[in-house]
């Protein structure tokens, strides 16, 4: 497995890189890959099927200079705070481990290093539902995955000091969803390391996750290939940087 060190970039670039790695992996041009990245500026990504009108407060996002990009994966909207959140992504063949065959167990296997990292910090952490990770009972990480031709792309968040008040302003969460979770606002459901009394810098959060992924998957550090970079560039132009894709629903 290959590990790609921290890339700080705009959301359309990050989403394009994830898809480029997946495509290259399907074509057998690159190995299984794990990477860590952050969004700059702070961004919102929305799930493949979400409605930009119903699920994001576009006016607030515009006012705050927060770009909104649609992911290739399903799931919900995410606020990626530039100095409050690290994103991980794993592109891996389904045959890498028996736990990857089943969707539920694959989330646990691939996001396992995040739970390990939280436990290392002394937090009571574990999985909740299909794809969330909770610390002291509140959501601190969410993941989403897609599968194509025997290859899984899974990416997800790790909130170390996300500004939950900004998150609450830019994401629209339906009342039905909050009621289902037994809360009346997103504030009651989400936490960060900072809120749990642990203050980490971006670099410390990155190093913590990197070590955890290295322990779990023993990858070798590498870089993106020219093929992936060219593919990513094309995907920015044609897809993730294009309103036709981002505002398609």
């Amino acid at each position: 497995m290959r590990f790609i060190p921290l890339i700080v970039a705009r959301p359309e670039v990050q989403m394009a890189i994830d898809e480029a790695i997946m495509r290259a992996r399907i074509e057998g041009k690159v190995p299984d890959t794990v990477r860590l990245y952050t969004f700059s500026p702070s961004s919102v990504t929305i799930g493949r099927f979400q409605s930009v009108v119903h699920d994001v407060n576009l006016d607030e996002a515009r006012k705050l200079g927060i770009p909104v990009v649609r992911r290739v994966t399903g799931g919900g909207s995410v606020f990626h705070d530039e100095y409050g959140e690290v994103t991980y992504s794993v592109v891996v063949g389904e045959d890498y481990h028996p736990m990857l065959r089943n969707v539920e167990s694959s989330y646990r296997y691939l996001a396992g290093p995040l739970v390990d990292a939280l436990k290392e910090l002394g937090l009571e952490a574990g999985f909740s539902g299909l794809n969330d990770i909770v610390a002291n009972g509140k959501k601190i990480s969410g993941s989403a995955q897609t599968r194509r031709k025997g290859v899984i792309l899974q990416h997800g968040t790790f909130m170390y000091s996300t500004r939950v008040e900004v998150l609450g302003r830019v994401l629209r969460v339906s009342k039905a969803k909050l009621a289902d979770k037994g809360v009346s606002s997103i504030w009651e459901r989400v936490t960060t390391l900072e809120r749990e009394g642990i203050n980490l810098s971006r670099w410390e959060a990155y190093e913590l996750l990197k070590e955890s992924f290295f322990s779990a998957f023993e990858p070798e550090e590498g870089g993106l290939t020219d093929y992936e970079l060219e593919l990513a560039e094309r995907l920015v132009e044609e897809k993730y940087g294009n309103p036709e894709w981002n505002e398609s629903r």
Partner: peptide
């Protein structure tokens, strides 16, 4: 979330949105 316009008893502009997962997308 399912939404559509009803015109003469027929569904137009059908849109299915939400934060569920479905493969293939």
């Amino acid at each position: 979330r399912i939404e559509f316009d009803e015109r003469d008893g027929r569904a137009e502009h059908v849109r299915i949105t939400g934060d569920f997962f479905m493969h293939p997308e």
